[in-house]
Computed example of a mutant assay.
Amino acid sequence: MKKLLLPLITACSITLISANASAQILSIASPPQGSVWNTMSNGIANVGRSKANINLVVQPYSGNRAMMDAVNQGLAEFAINDVNDAIVAVQGVADYKGKKRSHLRVALRISPQPIGIFVRQDSGINRIEDLKGKRVASGWNAFPIGRPHMEAMLATGGLTWDDVKNIPVPDLIRAADNLSSGRLDATYFAVGGPKVAEVDASVGGVKFLPVKADQSALNAVLKIRPAFYFSEVKPAPHLVGIDKPTQMLTWDNVLIVNDKVSDENVYQLVKAILENKEALIQIFPGFKALAVNTPNKNYPGIQYHPGAVRYFKEKGLWEK
């Protein structure tokens, strides 16, 4: 009888372990609702659940530093971030000075992400240089990545924080609300962000300011972060504030993952994202820029998760 029970108990144990593994809930840390990253995170969670059977939920945090700390500590498994911010987090410099977030890895280069300073359509502000003496969003205590982003865009017009009126804001959403209410002349957002459309409707129109995309401007922004570049953004229905081809400061959106997340989970999520582009576009049009043919780059100072590397190598997409 004991000989018969042992295999049965073993089989039941394996079944329970498998069930528990499949029921494991993984989370994507994101900024608050209304941001591009929150919208993208919800799209990825949806595809992860429906296409890869990964139980993913989106957990909002106050901003990028809180998100990176959550992933580094294992409180969340994934997060979308500007690769520049992930690099300085791993190195323990800039806004992360004093502690290296050594458990962060890249799972996937998702897409280029143009950003821009935007103003009211009737503001009379048409260039970065026109911001001199204007009320510009600053501080960014809850969203510290806002400081280097704004600093870099101001630098393309030869401006520094000393050239503008610094109006402290905690984060992107509050800054956009302050522009809408008239407390600010300028703030910034990711192009295509839902919040930009909301402000546009409330004030009768907004516009993004172009950056100078010459070598001098590039040299200036690379002194601030190592992986900025410029790209041209063309008008599209979901890109509020872009009415003509416009040069924008750009970074790469990357999916960051804790290094302890299993290779299989990372492999399956990367596979689900790259092989279901159309499903993602239905959720958020910004996924039209999903880098299915160039899902990795050799970024300085940060490594890729081995589960992601396995997928890239299988598909002939590994660039390193």
Rank of each mutant, 00 (worst) to 15 (best):
A186R: 11
E151I: 00
N219T: 06
P144D: 05
E198D: 08
L179N: 01
N219V: 01
K132W: 12
R183K: 15
S216A: 14
G124M: 02
V199I: 07
P148M: 11
T160V: 01
A186V: 12
N126K: 06
L159N: 07
G139P: 01
A152W: 04
I125K: 05
D214T: 09
V221F: 08
G157Y: 12
A137M: 12
V196M: 03
A142T: 09
A176F: 06
N219A: 13
Q215H: 07
I167T: 03
A176K: 04
P168V: 04
V191L: 15
N219G: 06
K134W: 12
I224L: 12
K212G: 01
G158I: 04
P210L: 12
A213W: 13
R174E: 10
V206L: 08
G157S: 07
E151N: 10
S216D: 10
A217E: 01
V191C: 08
V233A: 02
P144T: 02
D122A: 10
A236L: 10
I173C: 02
S216L: 07
N141D: 13
V136F: 14
I167M: 07
A217W: 04
R127L: 10
F208N: 02
A152N: 02
P226N: 05
D177T: 02
F208I: 03
L154F: 07
P144W: 12
A152Y: 03
F228C: 06
R183Q: 13
R174K: 10
D130H: 09
P210F: 14
P237L: 08
R127H: 14
W161V: 00
S181G: 00
D130R: 06
P170A: 14
D214I: 12
P148H: 09
